[in-house]
Computed example of a mutant assay.
Amino acid sequence: MRRYPTDLTGTRWAELDPLLPDPACLAGRGGRWEKHCRRVIVDVILYVVDNGIEWRALPADFPPWPTVYKRFAAWEKVGASQRLLDALRGRVRLAEGRVAGAVGRGHGLTVGTGRGDRRPRDPWPRRGQEGPGRKRHIVVDTMGLPLAVLATPASTQDRVAARSLLRRMRDTAGKRASLVWADGGYTGPLIDWARETLHLAVEIVQRPDLPYFTVLLRRWAVEQTLAWITGHRRCVRDYERLRHHHEAMARWSMIRITSRRLTRQT
């Protein structure tokens, strides 16, 4: 019986359950059996992501917050959220008749930046750089499904952060991705670096000089994904002390969206 709107249905849990890391006692690393059901743990994580609640303020009918937080941190330490997102993305692409996993030759990716919060993470930015806070960089496929997420201090230039982001994308998509679309903030040496180091073609999608708003088809995919992520209250602002936990929250928000999209099709 579902208690909250974020609780997983049986079909969605059947998609996620095989993708989670095995418990330590079953993987030969010793330890006790897990006391709380893994499905409930995932329900709590999705509840936190969607509602933006503090870990310590979890409802009383959930497992103790230290248990959930430790499981969340342990899964993130082994890269569970990235593997979940990669597997779900591949299944959605197959269900919609696309190439599994990443875009093929002749298609492209879109890279973009979303503003984070204004917490003083970088209190002494150099002149000409962004103010305090964090920025969230993502690269998505042509369907708007993320391949990589990166959180950096707001003082980090987009062209500098894009190098780490594209390396992550290459680790995820392999050599199946050959073209990246980006906005004007990524011009300069990044284009030559991506071509020589990662064998990626970076194409800049310029905004037309028009007096009115117009949708840029290639760049709109990343704007749409950023809107999906910030539709979850935990991702509207950066509440995490650790940068990689903020990246994990963004991935869990897309895991929720992607699993719903997949099960609606099936």
Rank of each mutant, 00 (worst) to 15 (best):
A74E: 14
A74M: 14
W75G: 07
W75L: 14
V78W: 12
V78G: 12
V78F: 13
G79M: 14
G79I: 14
G79A: 15
A80K: 10
S81Y: 14
Q82N: 15
Q82I: 14
Q82G: 13
R83Y: 13
R83F: 12
L84N: 11
A87W: 07
R89A: 03
R91N: 12
V92P: 09
A95G: 13
A95W: 02
A95R: 06
A95F: 04
A95I: 05
E96G: 10
E96Q: 08
R98F: 04
V99N: 03
V99F: 02
A100P: 08
G101C: 00
A102G: 04
V103A: 02
G104A: 06
R105D: 06
R105Y: 14
G106P: 00
L109W: 02
L109M: 04
V111N: 00
G112V: 02
T113W: 01
G114P: 01
G116E: 01
D117H: 01
R118T: 05
R118W: 02
R118G: 07
P120F: 10
R121D: 09
P125S: 15
R126F: 15
R126K: 15
G128F: 15
Q129Y: 15
Q129C: 14
Q129A: 15
E130D: 13
E130T: 12
E130K: 13
G131S: 12
P132Q: 15
P132H: 15
R134P: 09
K135E: 06
K135P: 06
K135T: 08
H137I: 08
I138K: 07
I138L: 02
V139W: 04
V139A: 02
D141F: 08
M143V: 12
P146R: 10
P146I: 05
A148M: 04
V149M: 03
A151E: 08
T152Y: 08
T152F: 10
P153I: 09
A154G: 01
S155A: 11
S155I: 07
Q157V: 06
Q157H: 10
Q157P: 04
D158H: 03
D158A: 01
R159C: 01
V160E: 06
V160M: 06
R163E: 04
R163Y: 05
M169E: 11
R170E: 07
A173S: 10
G174M: 11
G174P: 03
R176M: 15
